[in-house]
Design a protein around this nucleic acid. Structure first.
Length: 964
DNA sequence: GAGGTCACG
DNA sequence: GACGTACGTGACCTCT
C-alpha cells in the first residue's frame, strides 16, 4: 500500500539536532476519556479515549516536518498500581477511585495504538511513568538533546527548563490545549520557577494521589510560603517565629508530613533505562499496521487521511480470501486453508545463520530492535516445559531472515566435544533487554512454552519475563477453531505451515528419531539443528504476518486481544506455580487400593470359574454373557459386548453379584492407575510440586484443557475418589481457596435465551432445579427435582427424546412430552435453539457473547448422524464458550486486582472450567475472598451486561478436598 | 493406533 | 427404515 500522507521524518536528515518527545500515555487517556464522547468500535468496545490518543499521536507524527518536531519519540505508560512510593507511604494513591468501567478495556488498546504507529512503548514495574520520563529526560539532555514532555501533569512541571551542560533543554507540550509549557508558563501557574514546584506541591498535597501535604494549606498559601522563604525547609524552619495562627501550628505539627510529601512528589531521575534513547529514533511509519488498527476500530476519517479506501491491508488479492467464507457447506475448510500467498520467497533452509559469536548475536539483537517484531522459538532437551533444559534459541525477522543460536549442544557429557557456541548465560544476558522490551513484539508458536523455558533458564540472570508476545497457535485458534475436519490438533506448527504456507516443515522425528534410538536435540549436529530451529521461527514469522490482518478482517481481534492473548502469561505463571501433593498420602491410598483390588480379583475369578483379564472388556464380555450366560449382552459394531457402567449396573440390579464386584474393581483400578500412582510420578523433582500443562487450543469451544497430568478431572463425585483431592495440599501456614461459579452455564443459558422464569429464579437466589421441577411438574420433591436437573442439563447439551428417555428411564414419547412442556414453560429456549442453528447453518460458525467463533463444517452434512451431532454441539458451544470466556477474563484480571489490594503474593494455581484454585497465607483469607469473588462475579463487565447475577462460591481449607 | 472405559465440568 | 442415542475434555488399559 502507498501512503498518501507522508509520515516520513524529515528532521532526521539533520544529523546535528536531536529532539526527544516523551509521551505520558497513561495521564493522557484519563483526560481524553473525560473530554471525548463515548465512542465504540464496530465490535462494541468503547474506544473514545483510544481515538483521542490516536489523533494525538497522529498530530505528533505530523509535527515531524516542523523545526522543533521530534526526531525521537517514545510513549511511557504506568504499569503496576504499586510503586516504590507505596513502600514510603502506604496510603499513596490509596484514595484513587477505580477507573471507569468503559475506560478499563481501553488500556491495552493504548499499547496496540502505539504499536500500530510502530513507536516504542515503555513501562516498568515499581516505577511510575513520571520517573521514567524524568530519567529519560535527564539522559537525553545530558547528551545535548532537546526534550519535550507531552503531558500536562503538574508533577512533571518540575522538569521544565532543566538544561544540561551538554546544551539540551526540557519543555512540555499540552496537546489538548495545544500549548507549550516553558518556564514562564510554570511561573504563571505556580508563582515559582520549576525547581521550586516540588516544594509547593509538598505543602499543598494532592488529593488525587493522596499526597498528604499540610492540612489547611492549598495552592495559594503554599505558593506564598515558598515565595517568601525560598524552599520547604526554610518555610518549616521559619514557622516557630511566625505570629500565632492556625497556619503556624499546622506547619510545626505536620512538618514531617510535609517532608514525606516532598519525597513523594520528587521525581526519580536515575532509573535504569530499559531501552537506550537512540532506539527511539523515528523512522518512516509503516502504513499497513496503522491502517489495520484504524480500520479495526472504525477510525475512518484517519483511515482516509492515511490514503486508503480499502478496509484493511490483508494479503488478500481479490479472488479468494473473502469469497471463500460465504459458503461453509462446500468449502469451510478450504476457506481457512487456501489464502493466496503473499509474494514471499520460498522457505530456504540454506539461508539461515548459525550464531556462534557475541558479535554476531549483538548484530541480530540490534536488528530485532529495529524490526520491532521478532519471531522466537526455543529448542530444548524435552517436551515438558518444567523439566526441559534450554538447548538453543532461534530468531526470525522476515522471510528467510532467521538464525539459530545454539546454547547447550553437545549435552552434559564433559568428555564429549562440544561445538563452538556462546556461553548460555552470556547470551541470555544479551537477549534479556530484547525479550523484555515493550517496544519489540515477540511472536511464538505456543509461546507459553518458550515463556516458561526462558523464565526458568533466565533465573540465573536475574529473571527473564518475555513480553509483549503474540502466539500464532492461539491466533489460529481464534480464527479457525473447529474448522479442521480432521481433528483436534489443527493448530500445530506443521499443520499450519502446510495449510497456510503450502510448506512441509522438517520433522522432529527425522532429526532425532523415535523410540529407544531417539536422541535429544542437544545431540543434533549444528547444521541440521540450525535448519530445523530457524525454519520454525521463519514459519512463525510468516504465519504471524498472515494471521494479524485476518483477525481484524474476520472479527477475531476482540477475543484474541482482550481474552486469549493476555491469558498466555497468566496460564504460564499458573503452570510454573504448580500445586503441592502429599506423596505419602497418595502412596498410602495406592497400597490400600492395591489390597482391595487383589481381594476383588480373587472373588471374581472364583465366581467366574477361572482367571481372566478383568481389565479387558472383550474378555469380560465373553465371560459374563457367553460363559456365565447372563442376558442383555449387546454387541456393538465392533462385534464386542458392551460392558460399561450402565450395562454392569443393570446386571447387578438383576442379582449378578459379579457385576457389582467388577464395578468396584474398575473404580479402584481407575483411581490407582490414573491418580494415586500417576500423580506421585508427576511430582517435579526440582520443585516438589505437580505442574500440569494447559492447552489454550485444546477444546473447540474455547475452554482450556489440562494434560500431563490432567488436573481437571481429579475425582470428587464419590467418597472414595474424594480422598485423592485431600492429597492436594497447601504449603505449611497456607491454605487452598477454591472459588466456583455456581450453575454458570444455566445462568448464561437463561440470559442468552432470555428466559424470564429462569432469570427471575436466579435473581431471587432460588434453587434452580427446584424451580424447574415446580414449572414442569407442579411439585418439588426429590424425584421431580432430580428429573428437572437432568432435563436442564439435557437442554444445555442439545436435547433428543431418545437421549433424555435413556437418562430418565422413560419412553421416548414421555421424554418428548417433557421436552414440549419445557419449551412451553421456558419459551426462549426453543427460539434460542432455532436461531442458533439457523445462524450456524448460514455462516458456518457459532459465536459466544464475546465474539469467539466455533466452526461446524459438518452442520449441513447429508449424513444424519454427523449432522445431528454437529447440531447438538452447536447448541452447546455458545453457552460453554461464553462460560470459558468469562472465567478467562476473570483470570486475566485476577492478579492485578489482588496486587492492588496488596495481595500480590496470593498464587492462582488451577483452573477447572468454572473453578479457580488459589494458595495463600491463612491470615489473608478474609482479605482475598472479596477480591476474588468480585473479579469473578464481574468478569463479563463492562463488555456485556448480563441479565442474571453470576454466583461465586468460595471455600478454604488445608486441602483441595477440604476447600469444597 | 484404535477402541473401550471412566474421571471431571 | 437406519442412523445412534447429551456437550466438552484426557488418561489408562488391552489388543491388533
Amino acid at each position: 500500500m502507498d501512503t498518501a500522507v507522508d509520515l516520513t521524518p524529515k528532521a532526521a536528515t539533520n544529523a546535528q539536532h536531536r529532539h526527544l518527545y516523551l509521551v505520558d500515555g497513561s495521564a493522557y487517556i484519563f483526560r481524553a476519556y473525560h473530554r471525548l464522547p463515548p465512542l465504540t468500535n464496530p465490535k462494541g468496545v468503547p474506544v473514545g479515549a483510544v481515538y483521542g490518543y490516536t489523533t494525538m499521536l497522529w498530530k505528533l507524527a505530523e509535527d515531524l516536518h516542523k523545526a522543533d518536531g521530534p526526531t525521537h519519540l517514545a510513549v511511557i505508560l504506568d504499569k503496576g498500581s504499586t510503586t516504590f512510593r507505596n513502600a514510603l507511604y502506604d496510603q499513596y494513591k490509596a484514595n484513587r477511585p477505580p477507573p471507569p468501567e468503559d475506560l478499563v478495556p481501553q488500556f491495552p488498546l493504548i499499547r496496540d495504538a502505539t504499536r500500530a504507529f510502530s513507536l516504542a512503548c515503555i513501562e516498568e514495574d515499581d516505577l511510575e511513568a513520571d520517573d521514567l520520563i524524568a530519567s529519560y529526560a535527564r539522559a537525553a539532555t545530558a547528551r545535548g538533546w532537546d526534550v519535550t514532555i507531552v503531558s500536562s501533569d503538574k508533577d512533571l512541571m518540575q522538569l521544565v527548563g532543566k538544561c544540561a551542560a551538554g546544551g539540551g533543554c526540557v519543555d512540555m507540550l499540552d496537546t489538548m490545549k495545544n500549548q507549550r509549557i516553558d518556564i514562564p508558563e510554570v511561573i504563571e501557574k505556580f508563582g515559582v520557577p520549576p525547581e521550586k514546584v516540588g516544594d509547593v506541591l509538598a505543602l499543598m498535597g494532592d488529593a488525587v494521589d493522596n499526597v498528604p501535604g499540610i492540612r489547611g494549606i492549598g495552592p495559594k498559601t503554599a505558593t506564598k510560603l515558598i515565595q517568601e522563604h525560598g524552599d520547604l525547609e526554610a518555610a518549616l524552619a521559619a514557622a516557630p517565629a511566625m505570629k500565632p495562627s492556625k497556619l503556624r501550628d499546622s506547619l510545626i505539627e505536620q512538618a514531617d508530613m510535609a517532608r514525606l510529601s516532598r519525597v513523594l512528589v520528587a521525581l526519580k531521575e536515575d532509573c535504569d533505562l530499559p531501552i537506550p534513547i537512540e532506539d527511539f529514533e523515528l523512522k518512516a511509519i509503516p502504513p499497513d499496521p496503522l491502517a489495520a488498527f484504524l480500520s479495526e476500530h472504525g477510525f475512518t476519517s484517519l483511515l482516509r487521511k492515511l490514503g486508503t479506501a480499502a478496509p484493511a491491508p490483508a494479503p488478500a488479492p481479490a479472488d479468494t480470501a473473502t469469497a471463500s467464507h460465504a459458503s461453509p457447506t462446500s468449502s469451510a475448510t478450504e476457506g481457512a486453508s487456501r489464502q493466496s500467498l503473499p509474494a514471499w520467497p520460498e522457505i530456504d533452509l540454506g539461508s539461515y545463520a548459525c550464531v556462534q559469536s557475541m558479535d554476531e548475536l549483538e548484530r541480530w539483537i540490534g536488528r530485532a530492535f529495529d524490526a520491532r517484531i521478532v519471531a522466537i522459538d526455543t529448542e530444548t532437551s524435552a517436551l515438558d516445559s518444567m523439566r526441559a533444559e534450554l538447548v538453543g534459541v532461534s530468531l526470525a525477522l522476515g522471510p528467510n531472515d532467521a538464525c539459530y543460536i545454539p546454547l547447550g549442544h553437545g549435552g552434559s557429557d564433559m568428555f564429549a566435544e562440544r561445538p563452538e557456541q556462546i556461553d548460555r548465560l552470556v547470551a541470555l544476558r544479551a537477549l534479556k533487554p530484547l525479550l523484555e522490551s515493550d517496544a519489540v513484539l515477540k511472536v511464538g508458536q505456543n509461546v507459553k512454552y518458550d515463556i516458561t523455558i526462558l523464565a526458568r533458564a533466565g533465573e540465573a540472570v536475574g529473571g527473564l519475563a518475555v513480553a509483549p508476545v503474540d502466539d500464532t497457535m492461539v491466533m489460529s485458534f481464534c480464527l479457525d477453531a473447529g474448522r479442521s475436519e480432521t481433528g483436534l490438533a489443527g493448530h500445530g506448527m506443521d499443520e499450519l505451515a502446510e495449510r497456510h504456507l503450502g510448506h512441509a516443515t522438517m520433522k522432529f522425528k527425522d532429526l532425532c528419531g523415535t523410540g529407544k534410538k531417539a536422541i535429544t536435540f542437544a545431540e543434533v549436529p549444528l547444521a541440521d539443528a540450525t535448519r530445523y530451529a530457524a525454519e520454525d521461527a521463519d514459519v512463525t514469522w510468516r504465519l504471524h504476518r498472515l494471521f494479524g490482518p485476518r483477525l481484524s478482517d474476520e472479527g477475531g481481534t476482540r477475543i484474541y486481544q482482550t481474552v486469549d492473548r493476555p491469558l498466555v502469561p497468566v496460564v504460564a505463571q499458573m503452570e510454573r506455580h504448580g500445586i503441592r501433593v502429599d506423596r505419602d498420602r497418595l502412596a498410602a491410598l495406592s497400597s490400600e487400593f492395591a489390597g482391595k483390588i487383589g481381594e476383588l480379583e480373587a472373588v471374581i475369578y472364583d465366581k467366574c470359574g477361572g482367571a481372566f483379564t478383568i481389565g479387558s472388556p472383550k474378555q469380560l464380555g465373553e465371560v459374563l454373557f457367553d460363559k456365565l450366560g447372563y442376558k442383555g449382552g449387546k454387541k456393538g459394531k465392533s462385534g464386542q459386548y458392551s460392558t460399561d457402567q450402565s450395562v454392569l449396573e443393570t446386571l447387578a440390579g438383576q442379582g449378578a453379584e459379579v457385576a457389582t464386584l467388577v464395578l468396584e474393581w474398575r473404580q479402584l483400578s481407575k483411581l490407582k492407575s490414573t491418580y494415586t500412582d500417576a500423580l506421585q510420578a508427576a511430582i517435579n523433582p526440582a520443585t516438589g510440586r505437580v505442574h500440569t500443562s494447559y492447552s489454550l487450543v485444546g477444546a473447540q469451544t474455547g475452554r482450556l484443557s489440562s494434560n500431563e497430568p490432567n488436573l481437571q478431572n481429579i475425582p470428587i463425585r464419590t467418597e472414595i475418589g474424594r480422598q485423592i483431592r485431600d492429597a492436594f495440599v497447601a504449603e505449611p501456614g497456607n491454605v487452598l481457596l477454591a472459588a466456583d461459579y455456581s450453575q454458570i452455564e444455566l445462568r448464561l443459558a437463561a440470559h442468552m435465551a432470555d428466559v424470564p422464569a429462569l432469570k427471575d429464579a436466579f435473581a431471587a437466589g432460588e434453587d434452580i432445579h427446584a424451580r424447574t421441577a415446580m414449572e414442569m411438574f407442579g411439585a418439588v420433591d426429590r424425584d421431580t427435582r432430580g428429573r428437572a436437573k437432568t432435563i436442564n442439563f439435557a437442554i444445555l447439551y442439545g436435547i433428543s427424546r431418545w437421549g433424555l428417555a435413556g437418562r430418565l428411564g422413560t419412553s421416548a414419547d414421555e421424554a418428548q412430552a417433557m421436552i414440549d412442556r419445557y419449551f412451553e414453560r421456558f419459551p426462549g429456549i426453543q427460539r434460542y435453539i432455532h436461531d442458533t442453528l439457523e445462524q450456524v447453518r448460514e455462516r458456518g460458525y457459532s459465536e459466544t457473547l464475546f465474539g469467539r467463533k466455533t466452526w461446524f463444517p459438518r452442520i449441513n452434512s447429508k449424513n444424519q448422524a454427523e449432522r445431528q451431532g454437529s447440531e447438538r454441539a452447536a447448541i452447546n458451544a455458545p453457552i460453554q464458550g461464553t462460560c470459558a470466556d468469562i472465567i478467562k477474563r476473570a483470570m486475566v484480571r485476577m492478579m492485578p486486582a489482588l496486587q492492588t489490594a496488596g495481595l500480590g503474593h496470593v498464587r492462582m494455581l488451577l483452573q477447572v472450567h468454572d473453578e479457580l484454585v488459589f494458595e495463600l497465607p491463612e491470615g489473608d483469607i478474609e482479605r482475598a475472598r472479596p477480591v476474588i469473588e468480585d473479579v469473578m462475579a464481574r468478569a463479563a463487565e463492562p463488555a456485556i451486561a448480563l441479565t442474571v447475577p453470576l454466583g461465586v462460591e468460595i471455600g478454604t481449607g488445608p486441602s483441595w478436598g477440604a476447600a469444597h
